[in-house]
């Protein structure tokens, strides 16, 4: 017999907010990368401007979660659910910040840099978005088999990142006058790689939620 309807209801509200935050970060990455490819400074600026809303949503999640801990004094898996809600929301907020960094790089590059954006950057972003969607599903269903798949995807992103960086370095040698622009591109690839690392953190948190033990997933 479930007698904690109030707790479960408020926990679901927190989960809904986490979903919304994750959608916000996903849109930010999608729009930031699109603006990078299309040299769309206006769209990039929109990504930057919307970040405030995501920051507020993260704080809202923290407030609600802390209040829930204070009011309901949860233990065991209920407490872990709330603790990881705090951690996951912080990771997602940082992911959105990385998307904003790509948007800011787009703004600094401007509309007339004349460089082609490396096609792998778009592939990295798509892979990272797939990872995020998988991580949120793993969080929703508390499914460690889904969480486990994240590391393989992260390895693929790391590999693509290595390739992009090597080719960018070659580019700096042959095109030294464009170094400043090439660096912005390389940084954008780096921001996606970091975005994906935060998703791996979410995977670790899901392990902790389900198993109640700390796992090292970073070897």
């Amino acid at each position: 017999m479930t007698i904690r309807n109030q707790f479960d209801g408020e926990l679901n509200e927190v989960k809904t907010l986490i979903h919304e935050l994750a959608n916000g970060a996903d849109n930010a990455l999608k729009n930031a990368v699109e603006s990078l490819y299309h040299r769309d400074v206006e769209k990039a600026q929109e990504v930057v401007d919307r970040d405030n809303d995501l920051d507020k949503k993260e704080l809202d999640i923290h407030d609600k979660t802390i209040l829930l801990i204070a009011k309901q004094q949860p233990v065991a898996s209920d407490l872990r659910r709330l603790v990881i809600a705090l951690k996951i929301s912080s990771d997602i907020e940082r992911m959105a910040d990385h998307a904003v960094n790509i948007a800011k790089a787009t703004i600094r590059l401007g509309e007339n840099h004349g460089l082609t954006v490396h096609p792998k950057i778009s592939q990295m972003a798509e892979k990272a978005r797939d990872m995020a969607s998988l991580a949120i599903k793993a969080f929703e269903y508390e499914d460690i088999s889904l969480a486990r798949q994240l590391s393989g995807l992260d390895d693929e992103i790391d590999e693509m990142y290595g390739l992009v960086i090597r080719e960018m370095l070659d580019e700096t040698a042959s095109n030294p006058q464009m170094n400043q622009y090439i660096m912005e591109m390389a940084f954008s690839a780096r921001f996606i790689e970091r975005y994906a690392d935060h998703i791996t953190n979410i995977g670790e948190n899901i392990f902790y939620l389900v198993k109640g033990e700390t796992y090292n997933l970073n070897d």
């Binding site: 486990r148 994240l150 992260d154 791996t200 198993k211 700390t214 796992y215 070897d219």
Partner: peptide, 10 residues
Amino acid sequence: MSLIAKPMVN
């Protein structure tokens, strides 16, 4: 990054 779970708590 490998996701082979290793419990750290002993």
